[in-house]
Simulated scan of single mutants.
Amino acid sequence: MIDELYSARILKLAANLPHSGRLAAPHGTGERVAKLCGSKAIVDVRLDAEGGVAAFAQDVKACALGQAAAGVLGEAVIGASVHEIEAARDGVTAMLKSGGEGPEGRFEGLRALKLVADYPARHASTMVAIEATLDAMKQALARKSPGDRTSLAGAA
């Protein structure tokens, strides 16, 4: 079963980490660490005028499963809203903990990690990049003035 978990598809996703690094002037930064294994993700975002992801960078030090999740996230995150990322997080959580099918839409690629459900010790590592991205988005949105749809766009 462990060979299935670390399939060629998972290893390929782990090796491809889009938007690797850090942003020079992020609107928000999130950091998450999986306490059990030490997997860590730091994510920077800049938002567009509508609050979607305009620029994204991630520094992820995780096992192949955490790296694979970050790879899928990085491929699809540009243009995503906080609601889409919350739905992806909720979909992955349901997939890992209660037999759900996984996220739909732009983050459907995270379904490749469905077998992780059988390895609870790997759940937190799988979630670090998603959770760090949500933290960064929420921080950036909190910095936005209420009713001001251009305050972040001008800071980019």
Rank of each mutant, 00 (worst) to 15 (best):
K40S: 03
M95D: 07
R106C: 13
E86R: 07
Q58D: 04
I130N: 05
V43Y: 05
V92E: 13
D48H: 02
A132S: 11
A132F: 14
L96N: 05
M127G: 08
K114E: 11
V45W: 03
G30W: 11
I78P: 00
K35C: 00
H19T: 03
D135Q: 09
A54W: 03
V82S: 12
R149M: 10
R143I: 07
A24L: 13
L36Q: 08
Q58G: 04
E131K: 00
A24G: 12
L141Q: 04
L113V: 06
R89N: 13
V92Y: 09
I130H: 02
L73G: 01
P103Y: 04
A121D: 06
F107I: 12
G79S: 05
Q67W: 06
G102Y: 04
G99T: 04
A41I: 12
V82Q: 09
A49N: 10
L134W: 11
L47G: 03
R89V: 12
A14F: 14
D59F: 01
A34F: 11
I130V: 14
P103T: 06
S145A: 11
A121H: 08
G79W: 03
C37N: 03
R46P: 00
A129P: 02
K35V: 13
G52A: 15
L141A: 01
L47D: 01
V45D: 05
A55P: 00
G71K: 15
P120H: 07
A25P: 00
V72P: 05
Q139F: 15
G51K: 03
E50F: 15
V92F: 07
V45H: 07
E86I: 00
R149D: 11
A76N: 00
E84A: 06
R111E: 13
M95P: 04
Q139P: 05
M95F: 09
T93N: 05
K114C: 05
E131S: 12
G147H: 07
A41E: 10
A142M: 14
A69H: 00
T126C: 15
D148S: 04
P103N: 07
L141E: 03
T133G: 13
